[in-house]
């Protein structure tokens, strides 16, 4: 679940749909801090993603599926590069990435040590350094590390923080993006994402089909 950034442009078409939904106006803006994500009145935040007509049963199905998705989002393979600060993490213990690696201007490290200085388009068979296309950090707006499920859900679903992605775009990203898929093929001595990919894929479909709900407070 890394670096949504490069996919932004491809999903502009979905913007039209979301813009037509007045509820989304309440969604946090790109520049909101985490504290601002906790509105005093939680009723407004609820059903943020109410893009489709829902009933309770569907909503529950969607939320159950989102629990599975959350497990993936919070898996070290994914969340290590979704920090809320400027330091990526490493390993199952989620320690700060060695070498003082920083987000940099483009979420790709720098200005001296860029991610690509060590990480290629695939796992390096010699050095064991992991790699996948467009390796880098997710934009800060998509930082989840240390957040509650509710907060992650809000950031995840909100277009202003998720790179203008509709639920469909999110589903596509999560199941097709090469960097996301790396999580299930992380290379030597790394635990893959703990939720099997097929189970995850099904959860994404269930979540989307049942209204793309995220947890309320």
């Amino acid at each position: 679940m890394k670096a949504f950034s490069l996919l932004f442009m491809g999903f502009l078409t979905f913007f039209v749909i979301s813009a037509s939904n007045p509820k989304l106006d309440k969604a946090p803006s790109f520049n909101d801090s985490i504290d601002q994500l906790r509105p005093e009145s939680s009723s407004e935040a609820r059903n943020t993603a109410g893009l489709f007509p829902t009933n309770e049963e569907e909503k529950n199905k969607s939320l159950l599926a989102f629990d599975v998705i959350l497990k993936v989002l919070k898996d070290p393979r994914c969340i290590n590069c979704h920090p809320t600060d400027d330091r990526p993490r490493q390993g199952d213990d989620q320690h700060l990435h060695l070498f003082n690696v920083r987000r940099g201007k483009t979420n790709q490290g720098g200005p001296i040590q860029f991610c690509s200085g060590c990480h290629g388009d695939d796992n390096n068979v010699y050095s064991g350094v992991p790699g996948a296309p467009h390796w880098g950090l997710a934009p800060k707006s998509m930082g989840w590390l240390g957040l509650s499920d509710y907060e992650i859900g809000q950031k995840f679903i909100s277009k202003s923080s998720n790179g203008q992605r509709s639920p469909e775009a999110l589903a596509k990203h999560m199941t097709e993006d090469a960097l996301v898929l790396w999580g299930w093929n992380p290379g030597e001595n790394r635990k893959p994402v703990q939720v099997p990919f097929e189970e995850f894929k099904k959860a994404v479909a269930d979540w989307l089909d049942n209204g793309a709900h995220v947890p309320s407070k």
Partner: peptide, 21 residues
């Protein structure tokens, strides 16, 4: 790719060449 002794420049960027296939 931990110690940096193998650092070179590739197209002007700093690269640890032991981890650059």
């Amino acid at each position: 790719a931990m110690c940096g002794a193998c650092s070179v420049h590739v197209d002007g960027e700093l690269v640890r060449s032991c981890s650059f296939a």
